[in-house]
Write a protein that binds this DNA or RNA. Structure first.
Length: 815
RNA sequence: GUCCUUGUGGCGGAAUUGGUAUACGCGUAGCGUUCAGAACGCUAUCCCGCAAGGGUUGUGGGUUCGAGUCCCACCAAGGACACCA
């Protein structure tokens, strides 16, 4: 019979599916050693699963199957991150409610996952759009609100005048709405905001606890953007008012030649004299309208106006002008800066533009330039032109000058609070009632979930509210506090809400009383291995860490971090080496591949392609190579060897066979070792190479003398990668009793792996010249004696200066 | 601009972590099988050389008995952030 994945895969999927996949169920409170293996759950789009999903999910499936065979209780769940724009946009187009579309997409995704043989514990399936789930998303929001960590604030948002809606940053491409191409405007709107900044320091510090790729940690560190500096007060000339600026370089204070305020700075109207007011107003109007994209479009050209007011440099008492420019951001520091054009690039180009003085106060060697500076110098050095501080090195001066002007030490973060409302339909309703008398009143916990009502129109209202605002029956409520008339909050939560805590719900998916029982959280957390793409390096992974820490403070969980080890899978590119996309026509559909070669080939091919974290192009020839390999295994295991008839082997042949068997035994042991270690280190590509070498050797061996145990080992080692084929071969051809996936992982004998002899490398000046088979533990003297004759011709008459001997490895003659 | 990652055959990649560079697979070529093709099997496949031998891990330098691996500089590709004072 030929290998026919189409037949055997369906068969085994049915067997695994018995009693809702009972064989993959993990108990709530396991007694034995246990492991939580988590995938980043997908957004169930209409497109179905793509090969990138398959890569990450196969990797975690291999680990799950492997650790189960090693005797672990493995929690390996799957669910759906189903709120969000695509479903809503699709609803807008087709007039079909997302409530109908989403289940269809989920059904398709689930079928595809099952057709790949992924060993998920489906009794723990969750769906972020299920009221039983988002009840607890809303509950977490209420706790944040009660602790003052969710608040409302007027902030500027991206507004698409054509779609009449607020856009998230991700929905903007080059300053234009990604859907209609209209130029995005800036509007001030009242928004719900989560105070993630309150956790900035912990989010930064605890990165050290994590076993994550260094670059993801770096990205989070940069995103949090901690910077330590001081706040210095500048007196505004001819008034009693003071202006605070933040700086990390107080050592440059003597080089400050002007101050700059952000256009949003509240002090501007107060300090502007009447003769410059019109000009200032014009500039503010202009820059406040610009979108962030436009403000940043040209980083080198600076704009700005002089306010007409002056400040006094606290160090020199000089009068310096106060300017307004949009290169200063209100959201960072104090919204005002002291400009040191000689030592800051931005200040330098601003000073050049407006012909402001540039005063050098730091020189690398302590010698000031005589001619005009050509570019700013922002490094360390010796102070010049700095009064009593001249001659100090910049780092000492930093402390001394700060002390001199009474500056306060301040820590600033780039991290901003998380804007949490969306003027959208398809998201979790925010459980708040807006009462004209009581203000924002939280819903009572017993009234959760606040269900999302069905609506007919998904178009935004245009008056900056979500489509929910049009459903009067839903919006109008009585205030729980004063029982007067009140309105519901009509904004919904962003995409990221549901995914910020889903790994908790898997632990206790049906709990009606609480989001997760503490004992279960304590047992299973943190997630041992979390696999997903790098695209979530900051947003999702930072938000989830924030919520986790908040839940730690509430006592819901007990670990400081949610995900102990993070693994990023790389992107699978199209065959042309470009990103897969419909427009390029280079998309590979997993369904087609499964039909042609089977799920086992697809799984194994994606793992063989290269290291998991690499980006690598798809190859339609490459998958054939894996398909051939699985065919060779099939033929090897299923072929009936010819009967050994009475013919006796000669003594010589017997000896030879005995030796070959010994070698085979050793190779088997080595292969077990290699595959075991490679799986644990997530080196699946080399694990598969080792299996190939093992199979090649088995194929060379005379079949009639090949003991079945070597085939059994092969099937066991193969099973995490190609589970269907392994089950079929085990059951039908090796007469395995139970399921291969429930068997014990083979172990190896350390003594057998070790060899008595080794190949001594003989080098001359570090270059390999010969090798020699010798016993292990050979002494330097003996090695030298036996090796020397072999390399005599390279030594000639030259004298051996030195002999380097590495035990059980090499000997090197230096001449 | 800043930060991060990666540079090994025609291609994906391997290398006991400083010790035989190019494992495994793809592709290609030749041969076998076949009426023929597909499929399969065998052999070869980094470069120069008939050979002995010599050279080769983006480029240049350094450390070392010995460097693909460590250090410095440069070049190239990819990614992230981007006026954060």
């Amino acid at each position: 019979m030929r290998y026919s994945p189409q037949k055997i895969e369906k068969k085994w999927q049915k067997i695994w599916a018995k009693k809702n996949y009972q064989i993959w169920h993990a108990s709530d409170l396991p007694k034995k050693k246990h492991l939580y293996l988590l995938d980043m759950f997908p957004y169930p789009s209409g497109e179905g699963l793509h090969v990138g999903h398959v890569e990450g999910y196969t990797a975690s499936d291999i680990l799950s199957r492997y650790y189960r065979m090693q005797g672990y209780e493995v929690l390996h769940p799957m669910g759906w991150d189903a709120f969000g724009l695509p479903a809503e946009n699709y609803a807008l187009k087709t007039k079909k409610p997302p409530q109908e579309i989403v289940p269809q997409n989920i059904k398709r995704f689930k079928e595809q996952m099952q057709s790949l043989g992924f060993s998920y514990d489906w009794q723990r399936e969750i769906n972020t759009t299920d009221p039983d789930y988002y009840k607890w998303t809303q509950w977490i929001f209420l706790q944040l609100f009660k602790k003052g960590l969710a608040y409302e604030e007027e902030t500027y948002v991206n507004w698409c005048p054509s779609c009449k809606t607020v856009l998230a940053d991700e929905e903007i491409e080059e300053g234009k709405c990604e859907r209609c191409g209209t130029k995005v405007e800036r509007r001030k709107l009242k928004q719900w905001v989560l105070k993630i900044t309150a956790y900035a320091e912990r989010l930064l510090q605890d990165l050290d606890l994590l076993d994550w790729p260094e670059r993801v940690k770096t990205m989070q560190r940069n995103w949090i953007g901690k910077s330590e500096g001081v706040e210095i007060e500048f007196k505004i000339a001819d008034t009693d008012k003071y202006l605070k600026v933040f700086t990390t370089r107080p050592d440059t204070l003597f080089g400050v030649t002007y101050l700059v305020l952000a256009p949003e700075h509240p002090l501007i109207p107060e300090i502007t004299p009447s003769n410059t007011q019109n000009e200032i107003k014009r500039y503010l109007a202009e820059s406040l309208q610009k979108s962030d994209f436009e403000r940043q479009a040209n980083l080198t050209e600076k704009t700005g106006v002089f306010t007409g007011a002056y400040a006094l440099n606290p160090a020199t008492k000089e009068r310096i002008p106060i300017w307004v420019s949009d290169y200063v951001l209100m959201g960072y520091g104090t919204g005002a800066i002291m400009a040191v054009p000689a030592h800051d690039e931005r200040d330098f180009s601003f000073a050049k533009e407006f012909h402001l003085p540039i005063k050098e106060v730091i020189a690398p060697e302590g010698k000031p330039h005589l001619e005009e500076l050509e570019k700013p110098y922002s490094g360390e050095g010796i102070l010049v032109n700095s009064g009593p501080f001249t001659g100090l090195d910049s780092q000492t001066a930093r402390e001394k000058i700060a002390l001199f002007v009474n500056a306060k030490k301040v820590v600033n973060y780039k991290l901003r609070d998380w804007i949490f409302s969306r003027q959208r339909y398809w998201g979790e309703p925010i459980p708040i009632i807006k009462c004209p008398r009581c203000g924002n009143v939280p819903l009572e916990e017993k009234d959760l979930p606040l269900k999302l009502p069905q609506i007919k129109k998904y178009e935004p209202t245009g008056n900056q509210e979500s489509p929910l605002a049009d459903i009067t029956s839903w919006v109008k409520v009585t205030c729980p506090k004063c029982h007067g008339e009140a309105l519901r909050e009509t904004n919904t939560m962003p995409q990221w809400a549901g995914s910020s805590w889903y790994y908790l719900r898997y632990l206790d998916p049906k709990n009606k009383k609480f989001l997760v029982e503490k004992k279960k959280a304590q047992t299973w957390l943190p997630v041992d291995i979390y696999i997903g793409g790098v695209e979530h390096a900051v947003l999702h992974l930072l938000y989830a860490r924030f919520w986790h820490k908040f839940l730690l403070d509430l006592g819901v969980v007990t670990t400081p971090e949610p995900f102990q080890k993070l693994i990023n899978q790389g992107v699978i590119l199209g065959e042309d080496g470009e990103k897969m996309s419909k427009s390029r026509g280079n998309v590979v559909n997993p369904d087609t591949i499964i039909q042609q070669y089977g799920a086992d080939s697809l799984r194994m091919y994606e793992m063989f392609l290269g290291p998991l974290s690499f980006s690598k192009p798809w190859s339609s020839q490459g998958i054939i190579g894996i398909f051939r390999f699985l065919n060779r295994i099939w033929d090897l295991v299923t072929s009936e060897p010819q009967k050994k008839d009475g013919l006796k082997l000669t003594k010589e042949a017997q000896e030879k066979l005995k030796k070959e068997l010994q070698e085979l035994e050793r190779l088997e042991q080595l292969t077990i070792k290699k595959v075991t270690e490679d799986i644990e280190n997530i080196h699946f590509n080399t694990a598969i190479s080792a299996l190939m070498e093992y199979v090649n050797r088995l194929n060379d061996f005379p079949k009639e003398y090949l003991p079945k145990k070597y085939l059994k080992t092969l099937v066991l080692l193969l099973s995490p990668f190609a589970p269907h084929l392994a089950e079929e071969l085990g059951k039908t051809y090796l007469h395995q009793r139970g399921l291969i996936s429930q068997s014990k992982w083979p172990s190896y004998d350390k003594k057998l792996v070790e060899e008595k002899q080794f190949k001594l490398l003989i080098q001359v000046n570090g270059k390999l010249k010969a090798t020699l088979e010798v016993n292990k533990g050979i002494s330097k003297n003996l090695a030298q004696k036996s090796a020397l004759p072999l390399v005599q011709k390279y030594l000639g008459k030259k004298k051996v200066k030195k002999v380097i001997f590495v035990p059980d490895r090499l000997i090197n003659f230096v001449i």
